[in-house]
């Protein structure tokens, strides 16, 4: 069976800094993959490469078996059409009210009229448990949690086959984090979409992941199911999921060896 998304030996550098160093990853249809990793490990670059916002230096990224690396934007229009994306800060368009944000793709690409677009926005907002009273508000008038939920509504409005989530719970309080995790889980189950989430948040991983991959220094160094995650004795994974300062993972270019004291490390 062909994987929905397949990355093979993907490399990406910025100048002399190699960010992705041979990423290999597969996501099956309907699967929820969560990619974890520290800041600067290459998670966002990997996501942007899959979305075609960045072009890898080498390697292959296939969606539904179709090669996307080197494909011009117009050439991947049908792929873009089946993709939804929730950005870290929502990335709602400031100049448009909530309903035009949510129904943006339908209005701009499908030529949907205003009345139908408003209905679509109401339906999508309902899925993320928001009411129609938000429709005419400006994004600037929304709280952080609402911003994320409207962003989620926009991502799922066109019922995409693949949805990407970029740190969906960053900056939210624990209750809103749980709300967003449940909304993601519910939406994905209802739509049957394949999802890729990047996050630091282990609560999100346990709530939404079918499969988890750990990205470190531009490579996938561990991947497995949520059950395997809890039972793993991989030292890198254990350090990350337990949030330990000391271990094999180098923090900001400096190795914090468990044997060395913090003072010696400085």
């Amino acid at each position: 069976m062909t994987a929905k998304i397949a990355l093979s030996d993907v490399h990406k550098s910025f100048g002399t800094k190699a960010v992705l160093r041979g990423v290999n990853l597969q996501v099956e249809t309907g699967q929820s993959l969560v990619v974890i990793g520290g800041s600067g490990s290459g998670k966002s670059v990997m996501l942007k490469s899959i979305l075609g916002l960045l072009t890898p230096d080498s390697g292959s990224i296939k969606i539904d078996g179709r090669e996307t690396v080197g494909l011009a934007r117009r050439g991947r229009a049908d792929i873009d059409h089946q993709v939804g994306m929730l950005f870290q800060n929502g990335a709602l368009f400031d100049s448009l009210p909530v309903w035009k944000n949510v129904a943006f793709r339908a209005i701009q690409n499908d030529g949907m009229n205003e009345s139908d677009a408003r209905d679509l926005a109401v339906d999508a907002l309902k899925r993320v448990e928001l009411g129609p009273e938000l429709l005419d508000l400006s994004p600037a008038a929304l709280s952080g949690g609402m911003h994320k939920r409207v962003g989620l509504a926009r991502a799922i409005a066109s019922k995409p086959e693949i949805i990407f989530f970029d740190e969906p719970t960053t900056g939210l309080d624990p209750i809103m984090t749980d709300v967003i995790n449940h909304l993601i889980r519910n939406c994905v189950q209802e739509l049957g979409s394949t999802t890729v989430t990047i996050t630091h948040d282990m609560t999100s991983v346990r709530a939404i992941a079918d499969k988890t991959a750990l990205l470190y220094k531009g490579e996938i160094i561990w991947q497995g199911t949520t059950d395997e995650l809890e039972g793993s004795d991989d030292p890198f994974l254990n350090q990350f999921i337990n949030g330990l300062a000391h271990g094999p993972i180098e923090v900001e270019g400096q190795k914090l060896d468990s044997a060395a004291s913090p003072i010696e490390a400085v």
Partner: peptide, 9 residues
Amino acid sequence: DALTTLSTN
């Protein structure tokens, strides 16, 4: 980036 992912140039 959001515009691009929403199939708008």
